[in-house]
Design a binder for these strands. Structure first.
Length: 740
DNA sequence: GCATCCCGCCAACGG
DNA sequence: CCGTTGGCGGGATGC
C-alpha cells in the first residue's frame, strides 16, 4: 500500500510543477464531477471538464478522432508543447495503464473503510475524476468485486468494502481452488511442457482434472450477488477469471503462476477442446488486465519463470498467505463465537490490532447475511431516491401496535429509557475501540436498520439455553432468503458456530469446504424448530423429524452467539456486569415477520420437556411482558424494536434489533442439549410498515451500531482480519453453484 | 519480435 | 429505444 501512495500520484499531477503554463488538471477534475449524485452516466466523463484540462481535452479529442486524426493531434500537440508539457498532455501508454488507474482508484478509498461513512462508489464519478472511460472502471471494479472488495449496490453504484473481506475471500478461493484441483492441473501442465517441449500445444488438461472446474462465481457468505438476471450473461467472465486466477496462486506451492499456464487452465475450464490461438491470446489479455489490478492491490507481482524453453512471464503471489489467513479467519470466527472461552489476548494476537486485556468482539459471520440484507435494503433505498417503497417510520410501526400492548406502557417507558442509555453506550464504543485500537467490535447491521424489508429477514429466533447454562446464549437468525440459503449452524451450550456458506443450492460449491472447519465433534448442534409460520425459508425444514431439527436448523439460518441476561435476573451478577457495558441487540427487522423465540421452559414458559409434547401457550400479554422484562424484546412503544441483552461477564453482545412482538405462537418443544425448550413464534403485527425511513436521526443513532453493519467499524479500521464478515449485499446474484 | 495491454466496438441486458 | 455492462480482439506501445 505504501507503494501505492507513491504510485498513486497521478502522473499528470507530478508533472504539473514543470508546466506552469497550465493549471493543474487535477484541480479541475476534482471539481468537475463531484456533483456526483447524478446517476446518469455521462457519455464522456471528462467532456464537461474545463477545456483547459489537458487530459480531459485530449481525451475528448481522441475519443472523437480516428487514429489518423489522433496522430495528427499528437503531432500538433508535439508542436505546441515541448518536452514536459507534451508528456503531460500526451500521457504515455504506461500512464494510462490499468494498473496505474487502479492505483488511483484505490487511493480514493481506505483499505478498511469506516462503515459509518458513506463508502459508495459512483462509477461515473470515479471515471470522471480519474479521467478515464467508464469501461476501464468496469475492468477494475470487476476484479475488485471478485475479491469482494466492492459490491454492486445499483447501477453505477458500488459499495466499497476495502480489504476487510480479503482474508475470507482468499480462504474461500483457496478451498475452491483445491476442490478444482488447480494445483494438480498446474503440475500437470508443467510436466507436460517439460516433456513435450513444443510438441503438442494440446497439453490439454486431462478431463479427470478439469471436470471439477466450473465457471461459477464464488460468493462470499455476506456478499452474494443478488441480481438474478446477471447470472444469465456469460458475464462473470472477468470476475470469475479473476477468482480463478487468484485460486491458482493460493493453491500452488511456489505461489508463482505463469501466464500461459494460468491461461490454459482457465481456458480448460470452459472449453478444453479448442485451445486455439486466438482464445489463448484473448485469455492472456484478460489475465494481464486482472494482473494489473491485482498488482495494484499488492497481491501479486510480476516475475519471470525460466524454463527450458525460456523465460515466461509469470506472477508471484505476494498477498497474505492463504493458509495463515485461514487460520486467522478461523480464529476470528471462533472468537466471535466463543468470546468467553478464548482469551482476548489470543484472539487479538491473531489480528493486526489487538489489545490485550480487552475483549475483542467481532461480528459473527452468521450476521453477515443479515447485515447484507439490511445493507441491501438500504442500498436500494439510497440508490432509489424516489423509491416507490413506502417506508413507514418505525414510529408508525409503533403506532400500529395493538392496543393491548398499551398495558405495558410503563415497562415500555422504562425500556425506552434504558435503550436510550444503551444507545449512548453503543455509540461511544466504536470510537473508544478505534482509539484504543484494542477491541474488535463488530456490531450487527444495526446501521441499516431503517431499511430492511420483511422479505429479507423473516424471523429472528432466539434460543436461550437453560438459565443454568454457563455459556452464552444464542440467537438464531433465520436466513433472510427463505429456502434459498442454508447455513450450517452449530453450537454448543457455549458456542455457536456457523459456516456461512451457502447451501448446495446457492453456494454449493464453497459450502462444503467451508463448513468442516467449524464442525467440531464436541459441539452440539442447536436446533430450531421450523414452523408453518416460517416463510419459504422454513419449508424445507417443516416435516423433518426432531432428530433432523438440528440439521434443518443448520441449513436454514444463522446462529449468533450472544449473551443474554438471565431471565431470572440472578443476583446482580449479570445485571451488574452488564450495566457497565450494556449491549443492545437490535434486529434490522422492522417489517412484518415472525419472530421465533425459543425459551427454556423454566424461563418464560413451561415447555414440554420432550419433543412432540405440546405446551400450553402462555397468554400473549404475559409472554410479551415476560420477554420485555427479560430484555429479550423491547417494549412495543418505541419505534425501535430492540432486544437488550446484557452481556454476561461484562462482555458485549451483538446488537440485533428485535422486531416488535405482538403475537406469539407456540411452535413446539424441541430438545436443546437435552434440555427442554419450547419454541414460540412471535409474530409482528402484519401491516406494520417497514421502515426504511432513514430520516430519523434518533432512530438512526439508536440502531446504528458504531461498528456498523457494513463493516465493523473497528474491525475495519483497526482489525482488518477480525471482521471476516461482510456486511453488504451485493446486487447481483450469481450462481455459485457448483460447477459443472 | 514479442510482451503488454489500451481502446473502444458492439452485444447482452434490463428498464 | 436507451443506458449500462462488459466480452472481446485489433492493433499500438515499449523494451
Amino acid at each position: 500500500m505504501e507503494d501505492d501512495q507513491k504510485e498513486n500520484v497521478c502522473p499528470v499531477n507530478i508533472r504539473i510543477p514543470r508546466s506552469p503554463s497550465k493549471p493543474p488538471p487535477s484541480l479541475v477534475l476534482t471539481e468537475l464531477q463531484c456533483t456526483a449524485a447524478n446517476l446518469k452516466t455521462p457519455t464522456k466523463p471528462c467532456e464537461n471538464s474545463d477545456p483547459w484540462t489537458p487530459t480531459a481535452n485530449l481525451k475528448m479529442l481522441i475519443s472523437a478522432a480516428s487514429p489518423e486524426i489522433r496522430n495528427r493531434e499528437r503531432e500538433i500537440q508535439e508542436e505546441q508543447f515541448s518536452g514536459d508539457e507534451l508528456e503531460k498532455t500526451m500521457p504515455s501508454r504506461k500512464e494510462k495503464s490499468l494498473g496505474l488507474l487502479c492505483h488511483k482508484f484505490l487511493k480514493r478509498y481506505p483499505d478498511y473503510p469506516n462503515p459509518a461513512l458513506n463508502n459508495s462508489i459512483c462509477l461515473d464519478e470515479v471515471a470522471g475524476e480519474l479521467s478515464v472511460e467508464r469501461r476501464r472502471i468496469y475492468d477494475i471494479v470487476n476484479v475488485l468485486e471478485s475479491l469482494h472488495m466492492v459490491s454492486r449496490l445499483a447501477k453505477n453504484k458500488y459499495i466499497w468494502h476495502g480489504r476487510k473481506n480479503l482474508p475470507q475471500t482468499f480462504e474461500v478461493l483457496r478451498r475452491v481452488g483445491e476442490e478444482n484441483k488447480y494445483s494438480e492441473q498446474i503440475q500437470h501442465l508443467k510436466k507436460r511442457e517439460q516433456e513435450e517441449t513444443e510438441m503438442a500445444e494440446d497439453a490439454a488438461i486431462p478431463k479427470s482434472l478439469v471436470k471439477q472446474a466450473e465457471v461459477s462465481f464464488v460468493e462470499l457468505p455476506g456478499l452474494e450477488f443478488r441480481a438474478a438476471s446477471v447470472n444469465s450473461r456469460k458475464e462473470k467472465s472477468l470476475r470469475v477469471m479473476s477468482q480463478r486466477f487468484v485460486m491458482l496462486f493460493l493453491v500452488s506451492t511456489p505461489q508463482i503462476v505463469s501466464l500461459d499456464i494460468a491461461a490454459k487452465i482457465l481456458i480448460g475450464e470452459d472449453q478444453l477442446e479448442d485451445l486455439d490461438k486466438s482464445k489463448f491470446k484473448t485469455k492472456i489479455r484478460r489475465l494481464y488486465d486482472i494482473a494489473n489490478v491485482l498488482s495494484s492491490l499488492n497481491l501479486i507481482k510480476k516475475v519471470h519463470v525460466t524454463e527450458e524453453r525460456g523465460r515466461k512471464p509469470a506472477f508471484q503471489w505476494i498477498g497474505p498467505d492463504s493458509s495463515s489467513e485461514q487460520q486467522e479467519s478461523t480464529s476470528t470466527l471462533h472468537n466471535s463465537i466463543a468470546l468467553d472461552r478464548c482469551s482476548p489476548k489470543e484472539n487479538c494476537a491473531k489480528n493486526l490490532f489487538s489489545s490485550r486485556g480487552k475483549q475483542s468482539f467481532t461480528r459473527h459471520q452468521s450476521l453477515i447475511k443479515l447485515a447484507k440484507s439490511i445493507e441491501n435494503d438500504r442500498r436500494k433505498i439510497n440508490s432509489a431516491p424516489s423509491s416507490p417503497i413506502k417506508s413507514g417510520e418505525s414510529c408508525d410501526g409503533a403506532a400500529s401496535f395493538p392496543s393491548k400492548m398499551a398495558q405495558l406502557a410503563a415497562i415500555c417507558k422504562e425500556q425506552l429509557d434504558q435503550t436510550k442509555d444503551l444507545k449512548k453506550v453503543k455509540l461511544k464504543v466504536p470510537r473508544g475501540v478505534l482509539s484504543s485500537n484494542s477491541k474488535v467490535v463488530i456490531k450487527p447491521q444495526t446501521q441499516q436498520s431503517q431499511t430492511f424489508s420483511p422479505v429479507l429477514l423473516h424471523a429472528l429466533p432466539f434460543v436461550q439455553p437453560h438459565p443454568n447454562s454457563p455459556g452464552p446464549y444464542a440467537v438464531y437468525m433465520q436466513s433472510p432468503h427463505a429456502g434459498v440459503q442454508a447455513h450450517p449452524v452449530l453450537c454448543t451450550s457455549k458456542t455457536l458456530l456457523e459456516a456461512p456458506q451457502g447451501d448446495q443450492k446457492d453456494n454449493g460449491k464453497i459450502s462444503p469446504a467451508d463448513r468442516p472447519a467449524e464442525n467440531e465433534p464436541g459441539q452440539e448442534k442447536c436446533s430450531r424448530k421450523s414452523s408453518e409460520h416460517d416463510n419459504g425459508s422454513s419449508k424445507r425444514l417443516k416435516s423433518s423429524p426432531p432428530e433432523d431439527l438440528s440439521e434443518r436448523l443448520v441449513h436454514s439460518g444463522y446462529l449468533i452467539p450472544v449473551q443474554l441476561t438471565p431471565l431470572n435476573n440472578e443476583p446482580g451478577k449479570d445485571q451488574a456486569a452488564s450495566t457497565p457495558d450494556p449491549k443492545i441487540l437490535t434486529s434490522p427487522i422492522t417489517g412484518v415477520f415472525p419472530l421465533k423465540v425459543m425459551f427454556s421452559p423454566c424461563v418464560s414458559q413451561p415447555a414440554g420437556p420432550t419433543p412432540g409434547t405440546t405446551c400450553p401457550s402462555p397468554s400473549p400479554g404475559i409472554f410479551n411482558f415476560t420477554l420485555q422484562n427479560k430484555d429479550l424484546i423491547s417494549p412495543p412503544c418505541g419505534s425501535a424494536h430492540s432486544v437488550t441483552i446484557s452481556p454476561r461477564n461484562g462482555k458485549p453482545c451483538d446488537d440485533l434489533q428485535a422486531s416488535k412482538v405482538l403475537n406469539f405462537k407456540h411452535m413446539s418443544p424441541i430438545p436443546y442439549h437435552g434440555q427442554p425448550f419450547t419454541l414460540y413464534a412471535l409474530q409482528q403485527q402484519p401491516g406494520v410498515p417497514l421502515t426504511p425511513k432513514g430520516s430519523q436521526p434518533l432512530k438512526d443513532s439508536f440502531f446504528r451500531t458504531p461498528g456498523g453493519l457494513t463493516s465493523s467499524p473497528i474491525g475495519s479500521t483497526t482489525c482488518p482480519s477480525a471482521s471476516p464478515g461482510t456486511s453488504l449485499i451485493s446486487q447481483r446474484k450469481l450462481d455459485v453453484g457448483a460447477d459443472e
